[in-house]
């Protein structure tokens, strides 16, 4: 039981419960289907990003370029499909996005895995390279007419309904894609050798190398996988927004990493769970959407997220430091 109480997942879950409890006290209308679907909707794109960020953190790296990959992918895919293949169905549009994202991720992969450059610096660099390339050579104007496949996907809902007060709620089908991405990542991390190797590299690169793990190959896979997920998230974002705006998404990367770190993933690598990540995303979405319900003005939003990051990472770091001091 003692481990359960010191885990980040428990802490985050408690904060979420407390948040919802307080919100329900100050506004009884908070606990409604509409709030839940809003929350789930807000978590769709953030969730896919977070799963990607989690696997990079577990492998001991950090990636801040995924939002630029997503923006690049959604813009180029929308343009490409409009110009060349408007007939392709929605699932092929998603696959195209994953393909383009994977190619951009491979650039990160080459720089990090093959050349051995520091991950933060590389991805800070590729963030501005991808964004700069798109805005300079491809375009700066919004694409308001999406290809038919993406438009069709944008209209797909799982649940649709009307509240007692006459307002509508709905849950987008893309939620299932996010659930699928989480499921696939769970399978890779916990049911394949590749997943064990990602954890092993995050724990100690040198030990992983000595037991014969192809460190470069695994790192390369991680960045390609994250690229593919980011591409997927980009297509979903523009399908749901019904517009491909090249200025969207970039700037979100630190919130996503914050969500994953809140969920207990460690920057040093080797640690992190999908449960924690999902809870972290839920908390960030709650703060972004519903801080106002607690009577805290929306202008304090980033202070709240900053405080959460410091507490969420500070407690375990402080406990570890105290434990190390006692052991010494």
């Amino acid at each position: 039981m003692s481990t359960l109480w010191t885990r980040n997942e428990t802490l985050v879950a408690l904060v979420i419960v407390a948040f919802c409890g307080l919100a329900a006290l100050s506004d009884p209308g908070f606990l409604s289907v509409a709030t839940l679907t809003d929350l789930l909707r807000g978590g769709i794109v953030l969730g896919i990003f977070a799963v990607g960020a989690l696997i990079v953190l577990i492998s001991g790296g950090i990636d801040v370029s995924f939002t630029a990959i997503a923006a690049f992918t959604m813009y180029v895919t929308a343009m490409l499909l409009n110009a060349a293949m408007p007939w392709i169905p929605w699932w092929a549009a998603l696959l195209t996005g994953m393909g383009i994202g994977a190619c951009l991720g491979a650039i990160n992969g080459v720089l990090i895995a093959v050349m051995g450059l520091p991950t933060l610096i590389v991805t800070l660099g590729t963030l501005s390279v991808f964004r700069g390339f798109m805005l300079t050579f491809i375009g700066q104007k919004q694409i308001t007419t999406l290809p038919p496949g993406m438009r069709e996907f944008g209209r797909m809902m799982i649940v649709r309904g009307e509240n007692a007060d006459g307002s509508f709620y709905s849950l987008h089908a893309a939620f299932l894609v996010t659930a699928g991405a989480i499921g696939l990542t769970w399978f890779i991390l916990h049911r394949t050798m590749l997943g064990r190797q990602v954890f092993a590299i995050g724990g100690s690169v040198e030990s992983a190398r000595r037991i014969g793990i192809d460190v470069r190959g695994v790192q390369f896979f991680v960045y390609v996988y994250v690229g593919a997920l980011a591409g997927l998230a980009g297509i979903i974002h523009s399908s749901m927004a019904r517009v491909a705006n090249p200025f969207d998404l970039v700037g979100l990367e630190l919130s996503v990493i914050a969500a994953v770190v809140l969920g207990g993933a460690r920057l040093a690598g080797g640690h992190g769970t999908l449960t924690g990540t999902v809870l972290g995303v839920a908390l960030i979405v709650l703060v972004r959407n519903s801080l106002i319900v607690l009577g805290i003005p929306a202008t304090w939003q980033s202070v709240a997220i900053g405080v959460l990051i410091l507490i969420g990472t500070g407690l375990p770091a402080w406990q570890a430091k105290r434990a190390a001091a006692q052991a010494a």
Partner: peptide, 29 residues
Amino acid sequence: LVASLGLPPILATLGSGLIFTGIAIALTG
């Protein structure tokens, strides 16, 4: 945060940076 509490500098300054910017936004709207 970095020295006494042992937070990784990236996270400590990422979080505190959000707080400083957030206070700046809250003060000026």
